[in-house]
Computed example of a mutant assay.
Amino acid sequence: MQSANLQKQKLELIEKIIHTDDQNTLDFLKSILNDETSDYELTDEQKQIVEEATAKYYSGEEPSFTWDEVKNNIRKRNFQD
């Protein structure tokens, strides 16, 4: 049996889907629910950018942040502006 919270979350998502008018959102959700594979591929330039960023991350050249740190930094900037 599902928990009340899980059931509530499902109903909230259904409500959002019912009220969306964005075809791209509906197509995206449909592909996820149908477990379709994406036809999207990165360009060679995009792959190079990802590889360079990954190398910098692993070498310690660029700092990394947790999701909470990122959110807090954004909030601090918004309050300073």
Results as ranks from 00 to 15, higher is better:
residue 47 K to W: 01
residue 21 D to E: 13
residue 63 P to N: 03
residue 47 K to Y: 02
residue 47 K to Q: 07
residue 12 E to I: 07
residue 28 F to M: 09
residue 60 G to C: 06
residue 75 R to V: 15
residue 35 D to A: 14
residue 39 D to P: 09
residue 8 K to F: 04
residue 62 E to R: 04
residue 69 E to N: 02
residue 59 S to V: 05
residue 52 E to D: 15
residue 71 K to P: 07
residue 74 I to P: 11
residue 9 Q to D: 14
residue 7 Q to V: 15
residue 58 Y to L: 15
residue 81 D to E: 05
residue 11 L to R: 03
residue 73 N to E: 13
residue 52 E to S: 14
residue 37 T to G: 01
residue 13 L to V: 14
residue 15 E to M: 01
residue 78 N to G: 06
residue 57 Y to A: 13
residue 35 D to L: 14
residue 66 T to C: 11
residue 8 K to T: 10
residue 20 T to M: 04
residue 10 K to P: 00
residue 9 Q to A: 07
residue 46 Q to S: 11
residue 64 S to C: 04
residue 60 G to S: 02
residue 59 S to N: 13
residue 30 K to L: 13
residue 29 L to D: 00
residue 69 E to T: 06
residue 31 S to C: 03
residue 5 N to L: 06
residue 72 N to C: 02
residue 76 K to S: 12
residue 13 L to Y: 00
residue 7 Q to S: 09
residue 54 T to M: 09
residue 77 R to G: 06
residue 76 K to H: 08
residue 21 D to Y: 07
residue 20 T to N: 00
residue 28 F to Q: 08
residue 47 K to S: 08
residue 39 D to V: 08
residue 29 L to F: 03
residue 74 I to T: 07
residue 20 T to V: 13
residue 45 E to D: 05
residue 64 S to Q: 09
residue 63 P to R: 03
residue 50 V to Y: 11
residue 54 T to C: 10
residue 72 N to E: 15
residue 20 T to R: 00
residue 27 D to E: 15
residue 50 V to N: 09
residue 51 E to F: 03
residue 81 D to S: 04
residue 55 A to D: 14
residue 32 I to F: 01
residue 4 A to T: 14
residue 63 P to E: 01
residue 67 W to C: 14
residue 43 T to H: 03
residue 22 D to A: 10
residue 26 L to C: 04
residue 56 K to R: 12
residue 6 L to H: 03
residue 71 K to W: 10
residue 54 T to Y: 10
residue 61 E to L: 09
residue 26 L to I: 07
residue 76 K to C: 10
residue 32 I to C: 02
residue 19 H to D: 06
residue 69 E to H: 09
residue 71 K to Y: 12
residue 44 D to E: 12
residue 18 I to Q: 04
residue 69 E to S: 02
residue 52 E to F: 13
residue 21 D to C: 13
residue 39 D to T: 12
residue 39 D to W: 00
residue 24 N to V: 02
residue 74 I to H: 04
residue 79 F to R: 12
residue 48 Q to G: 03
residue 18 I to F: 05
residue 26 L to P: 00
residue 9 Q to T: 09
residue 12 E to N: 03
residue 43 T to R: 01
residue 55 A to Q: 14
residue 61 E to C: 14
residue 4 A to Y: 12
residue 65 F to K: 12
residue 23 Q to Y: 00
residue 38 S to G: 04
residue 48 Q to V: 08
residue 76 K to Y: 02
residue 8 K to P: 00
residue 62 E to L: 10
residue 72 N to F: 01
residue 13 L to K: 01
residue 63 P to G: 02
residue 77 R to H: 10
residue 47 K to G: 03
residue 27 D to V: 08
residue 3 S to M: 07
residue 42 L to Q: 03
residue 60 G to N: 03
residue 20 T to K: 00
residue 55 A to E: 14
residue 67 W to H: 12
residue 32 I to V: 07
residue 80 Q to W: 11
